[in-house]
Every structure is written in structure tokens, then in C-alpha cells.
């Protein structure tokens, strides 16, 4: 029911125009459900139809309405949308690396690195908010995804909060870290930017350029485009999930192999 119909209507001239597919090509049928903060009744259904029309559904039908508590109504609508989709005009921004499952991440590390990938993580400076780093590293994870620890092929050392930069460098050297993950939540007087620059400088000093671990920072107030300016390899912002980080590590650290992706 939810697979989009790419049955196409390759019209003359090469442009491909489609519409949602209910049971007939071009019927434009969609379903929609939502809740309105009004008691159930004619008024609620009328309001739902008005919304549906504004959304481009015409005709629309309320097929189900149900009171929820005192002042709310849940509604299910079916209807036809009049909009057309020009497939050639659809712009998709590709992530520069594919999102991998835990299984794929483990397999990639096993076959391409042939040893465990070592990650050292910490909150640096006075920041005691380990929420971010724990969400990414702890097996508990975040948003229903397990953290990096969950991956058999990733060896995680979470140093916790208020780690000093020299300590972090020392641990990275001792553990032979492939990547260093730093979380910064506190942004008072731009502490997160200052700490990140200090950390990047310390790693450049301690390592020859070729063997420096990948430096990754994350936090809710970072600008994801500022990596180069801060001297790190990658910045992750608010809402980043563990699998995005793990997939990035695989992408950035593992020697590539011929792509098997089909077009």
C-alpha cells in the first residue's frame, strides 16, 4: 500500500510526470490521518475537509472520525490530489557516504580493516554533559539505535566527562585510536569552539600528519560546515544518530574497495 508507484508515464519529450497511485494509474489517491483539537461531530469533519482541500485533496472523504477524550477528534481521510510530480525535477541530496546497518559496519571493518576499529570518546573542558557522547557510544544508544559499543568490530573507550585535552591525547596514543570523538554541549562564551580548536592543535602536535586519528566533534550548537575552520575532520549537529557516526567512520577510515552499488 505504501510503495510509491514508479509506473510511469514516460510521455513524449522525455519528461516523466507522475501522480500517487491508488488502484488506477493517474488516480492521485492518498490517505491522510490527523487529530484536530475539537470535539467529534459535524464541525470536526467539516474542518478536516477544509484542511484536506487546502492541502490539494479534492474530492476528499472523511472515512473515519473518532472522539479522543473531551476535546479531540482523530480523522482518517481518503482523497485525490491534483498535484503532479515531475520526476526529472526531483532534487535529492545524497549523503556523501551510505548509511550502513550494524551488520554491514561490522562486515566492512572485518574485511577491510582486518582488526577492530578503535574509538576514543570524551567530553572535554569543564563540560559534564555526557548525554551526547553516551548517546553515540553507549550500547543504550539514541533514537532506537544502539551506540557504537554495540558493534563487535568497534572497540570503544568512553573516557567520560571533564577530560583534559592532554589526557585525551595520551589515551588516544595508548589505545591506538583510529578516531577520537568529542562531545561539547556547553557553549558559554563559545567554550565549545575554543575547546575544539585546542584539541585539534594538541593532536596535530602529538601526531605526524599521516597517522593522526580522525577527529570528530559533536554537539547541538555546532555548525556542521565549520570542520575545516576548527581543525577537525567532521562535525555532527543536533539529532545525529549512532549509525550516522559509525557509517561515517567506515567511510572515512577504511580503504575503499570497488563499489558494488548498482545505479
Amino acid at each position: 500500500m505504501s510503495t510509491p508507484a514508479i509506473t510511469s508515464t514516460a510521455a513524449a519529450g522525455g519528461s516523466r510526470i507522475i501522480r500517487p497511485y491508488g488502484d488506477t494509474t493517474g488516480d492521485g489517491m492518498v490517505q491522510l490521518s490527523f487529530t484536530l483539537p475539537v470535539p467529534a461531530g459535524k464541525k470536526a469533519e467539516g474542518a478536516a475537509l477544509q484542511l484536506a482541500r487546502s492541502m490539494g485533496m479534492d474530492p476528499a472523504m472523511v472515512v473515519h472520525a473518532r472522539a479522543m477524550g473531551e476535546g479531540y477528534t482523530f480523522l482518517v481521510l481518503y482523497g485525490r490530489v491534483n498535484h503532479l510530480i515531475d520526476l526529472d525535477a526531483v532534487q535529492v541530496t545524497e549523503r556523501e557516504y551510505p548509511l550502513l546497518s550494524a551488520k554491514e559496519i561490522n562486515a566492512a571493518i572485518r574485511s577491510r580493516l582486518r582488526r577492530k576499529l578503535v574509538v576514543v570518546g570524551a567530553c572535554i573542558g569543564t563540560d559534564a554533559h555526557t548525554v551526547g557522547i553516551d548517546a553515540i557510544l553507549d550500547i543504550k544508544g539514541f533514537a532506537g539505535e544502539k551506540g557504537l559499543e554495540y558493534h563487535r568490530e568497534i572497540e570503544v573507550h568512553n573516557l567520560g566527562a571533564q577530560v583534559l585535552v592532554p589526557q585525551l591525547v595520551e589515551q588516544a596514543l595508548a589505545r591506538r585510536a583510529d578516531a577520537v570523538l568529542v562531545s561539547q554541549v556547553v557553549t558559554q562564551r563559545d567554550a565549545h569552539l575554543h575547546n575544539t580548536r585546542e584539541m585539534a592543535a594538541a593532536f596535530r602536535e602529538a601526531y605526524p600528519a599521516a597517522s593522526r586519528p580522525l577527529l570528530v566533534v559533536g554537539g547541538p550548537r555546532f555548525d556542521e560546515g565549520a570542520a575545516a575552520e576548527l581543525g577537525v575532520d567532521r562535525i555532527f549537529g543536533k539529532g545525529t544518530t549512532p549509525s550516522e557516526v559509525a557509517s561515517y567512520l567506515v567511510h572515512a577510515l577504511l580503504p575503499a574497495r570497488p563499489s558494488r552499488r548498482s545505479a
Partner: peptide, 13 residues
């Protein structure tokens, strides 16, 4: 589950 924190309608359903 795994999509949003439950909406009013999710709980009711």
C-alpha cells in the same frame, strides 16, 4: 515506535 514520540492518536489507537 522508532518514528515519533507517541502522539495523542497513537496512544488512543
Amino acid at each position: 515506535e522508532a518514528v515519533v514520540t507517541p502522539w495523542l492518536s497513537d496512544r488512543d489507537l
